[in-house]
Amino acid sequence: MIRFDNVTKNYDSKSQPALDAVSLDVDRGEFVFLVGASGSGKSTFIRLVLKEDRASRGAVYVAGQNVANIPSWRVPRLRRGIGVVFQDFRLLPNKTVFANVAFAMQVIGRSRAVIRETVPDVLATVGLEGKNNRMPHELSGGEQQRVAIARAIVNRPGILLADEPTGNLDPTTSMGIMKVLDRINQNGTTVVMATHDDDIVNTMRKRVVELRNGSVVRDDAQGIYVGETGVLTG
């Protein structure tokens, strides 16, 4: 589903590359943790998949297509196939929960009838039944992140990218979010989650790809992650 072929990304020529000759394959339906300290290249990985940035060298394939060959007017179509969730939720503060999720369907031209039918289903999937008319500031952090997840998956993307989705949440709430992401993955969506939360990684027992200074230093099928100390087990 996502393939990095010897990808290097330099933001500027003097400093060390953000990604350094990374090769990686993520299959359809997989759940992958991308772990590593801040600045290890996790966010760059996500930006390259979304074609927010161009790779300096090497090729990025998404759904079999080299993103370098996608003309700029086709980039929106690429992004429709990818849902994204961030640490800071990025909800629209003056729109209700329903409207926030519906927004993602409106901008790609879905009909009102389809929106009215789909949004409540998706809100139920992320565990927000009955909160349609709440405003974001009335919700807890975990609930806000669920709204963001609902918005990311409402157009049924094949890939869900999550950049530190639990970074602002306490451990209990984080586990709730992980259950939601797991359920989405069970339904066939490929999930790539960047995190440095070792508890979560160790509980989920999914594939772990560890980046350090822009290079892949580990790729375990059912790995664990031991925080910043660098002590590896499992």
Binding site: R90, F103, I108, N155
Partner: peptide
């Protein structure tokens, strides 16, 4: 900018943005 950022992420076309 918040709206347009989200629009970009969910794949709104250039025209809609």
């Amino acid at each position: 900018r918040r709206e347009t950022g989200i629009m970009r992420l969910v794949g709104a076309s250039k025209a809609v943005i």
